[in-house]
Design a protein around this nucleic acid. Sequence first.
DNA 1: TAACAAAATTAGTCAAGACTAAAAATGTTG
DNA 2: CAACATTTTTAGTCTTGACTAATTTTGTTA
Lengths: 131, 131
Amino acid sequence: MEHAKLSQSLEDYLEMVHILRLANGVARVKDIAAALSVKMPSVAKAMIELKKLGLVTQEPYSGVELTEEGERVAAIILNRHILLKGFLIKLGVSEAIADKDACCMEHILSAETLGKIEEFMKVKAPKSIRK
Amino acid sequence: MEHAKLSQSLEDYLEMVHILRLANGVARVKDIAAALSVKMPSVAKAMIELKKLGLVTQEPYSGVELTEEGERVAAIILNRHILLKGFLIKLGVSEAIADKDACCMEHILSAETLGKIEEFMKVKAPKSIRK
DNA sequence: TAACAAAATTAGTCAAGACTAAAAATGTTG
DNA sequence: CAACATTTTTAGTCTTGACTAATTTTGTTA
């Protein structure tokens, strides 16, 4: 059973739920909003969508949990983020900018490009910086 | 006098006007629509915005022209596209996918990241394609 | 525990950017 | 040159995803 592709926006929300749960054990609406620089009602609406998709659960007026499937999808997104950030840092981009740009790239790159970047990171890891 | 930052969508339209003018001498609404996989009314509305911004001109019911400023901005966007496409190809991505992914990346990457990619391309480029 | 503070939700608005349908203008051709 | 085809434009709808304002629920504390 496959889920429809998430919008960039929903991917961001889902990823942030995962990150906050890893960091704090719980993902609260207020913290999701602050982390993504949006207001709480925007988070509430996004959570409604993610619930419909079976990716998160939430008791009324409490923190957001991930379903098993939600955790799986969130982990994929987060891994993409980590890969891309590391890649940009290897190119010499500062950490803050690498993080920000990875955040955009993670939603748009094709599987093929992601695969090539992964290869690049493996092969070229330490020093062999040449063609 | 600086223009406000264009939306990703308007950047795409402006770039395509430039590309079609380079290829055909003229950028027609119909061709812009086909090239971007949208319908003609979407192009018409985008052109209204670009006219407001002083980037294109258009006689009623005819092709779209670039202003001097429009040409300048379009060239910057197109150069980003060419840089990124070449970069992805160097990573081993197929040309079609490189083109598609470059198209997304060109609107979102920071100046810093673009600069580092440029450096990377210079250092690693075979002598045959150096200026 | 009553009152206040904080967090979450609901309701409704707005803008961007796509679409369809239909009208207007331009081009083509028998 | 009249009829038809193509292109452009206009008008209006829809979806996404933000927002504010106001309400409801939960948490805190005097």
